[in-house]
């Protein structure tokens, strides 16, 4: 659905994207994660043709992002926390304004169903609604025409837990039933984890990782080695697949990004024969993200020091 190759974008004072490569496959929910300033929103804006890219190729629904036209926009639902809505309108007026643009794609029954499900006030202007209600209205305006591709840029930002849960439940339900392709950028990894099929992690303007969540979970383990006495000093040249490796007290801990139960156990038995116990714990998406973010920071510090 979305293919991004070698995407570059430079702003006057910094280079935001340094060759992003990303695929958002059809029918899957792809979470787009990364620390602040990593380039998530810039990538999405380039994909939605909201800003011009400097270099690279970017295809959305098989069309160059710069040439997105009526047909494509009738199949894309875009929700962003930053989008400026006509706040003087009520939800029914907004829907009335939008309906003609989507023609036969607009599903009035679906719109009414979602309006009821989201419990949106019908006589209140958007400006007088709570942030959660506004986001629901935004979601309603982006989904009522049953888009094939749903792009959500930080949709949970600023929502309290209850609203976030409601919002997410609604989205989850629809995504499951409609089989939409969803591309969602968020800080809220735990929420995203509930329904993401795939994850892409961007850092410093480059996508470092994009993979199905299942394989990612299988691959990543938080490993701890326990020793009788003080743990040995880490040998030089620890495998590149070990992130944030450290030796403290009687333990050595690291994140193994390519954990294989038998192979990893054999390697550890060879490298640290004195360890008494090995614990390889599956990680949540959040833990994986934090581990990667730490490793990026560590590598940035070391590269800065060198």
């Amino acid at each position: 659905m979305i293919t991004i190759r070698n995407l570059h974008k430079r702003f006057p004072r910094h280079e935001a994207l340094r060759g992003v490569n990303l695929d958002v496959p059809e029918g899957k929910v792809t979470a787009f994660l990364g620390p602040n300033g990593a380039g998530k929103t810039t990538t999405i804006k380039c994909a939605m043709n909201l800003i011009e890219r400097d270099h690279g190729e970017l295809s959305v629904l098989g069309t160059d992002a710069r040439k997105l036209g009526r047909e494509q926009w009738q199949r894309i639902g875009y929700v962003s926390e930053n989008r400026q809505f006509p706040e003087w309108m009520t939800v029914p007026k907004l829907m009335k304004f939008l309906r003609p643009m989507y023609g036969k794609h607009w599903d009035l029954a679906f719109e009414q169903k979602m309006t009821r499900a989201f419990e949106l006030p019908l006589k209140t202007r958007l400006s007088a609604m709570s942030r959660g209600q506004r986001m629901k209205a935004a979601l309603l305006s982006a989904l009522a025409y049953r888009p094939q591709l749903v792009v959500l840029d930080e949709p949970f930002s600023g929502l309290d837990a209850l609203v976030r849960d409601e919002f997410l439940s609604g989205l989850l339900e629809l995504t499951d039933s409609e089989g939409w392709t969803v591309w969602i950028s968020s800080h809220d990894i735990e929420e995203v984890e509930r329904f993401a099929d795939r994850v892409a992690i961007i850092n410093a303007g480059k996508v470092d990782l994009q993979e199905d969540v299942e394989t990612l979970r299988e691959r990543f383990r938080s490993v701890e080695l326990w020793f009788e006495d003080a743990a040995p000093v880490l040998p030089p040249g620890v495998p590149e697949t070990w992130l944030n490796a450290k030796s403290e007290g009687r333990t050595i801990s690291y994140i193994d990004t390519k954990y294989d139960e038998h192979r990893s156990a054999a390697v550890l038995a060879h490298s640290f024969p004195g360890h008494r116990r090995l614990e390889a714990r599956p990680m949540t998406l959040r833990e994986i993200f934090v581990a990667l973010a730490r490793s990026y920071r560590g590598s940035a510090v070391s590269s800065h020091a060198s």
């Binding site: 804006k45 939605m48 043709n49 909201l50 800003i51 036209g69 009526r70 047909e71 926009w73 009738q74 894309i76 875009y78 962003s80 930053n82 989008r83 400026q84 809505f85 006509p86 939008l98 643009m101 989507y102």
Partner: peptide
């Protein structure tokens, strides 16, 4: 205006 409502609408 990257935040403009009309930019992501059909023929916006």
């Amino acid at each position: 205006n990257e935040r403009a409502f009309h930019l992501t609408l059909p023929d916006g």
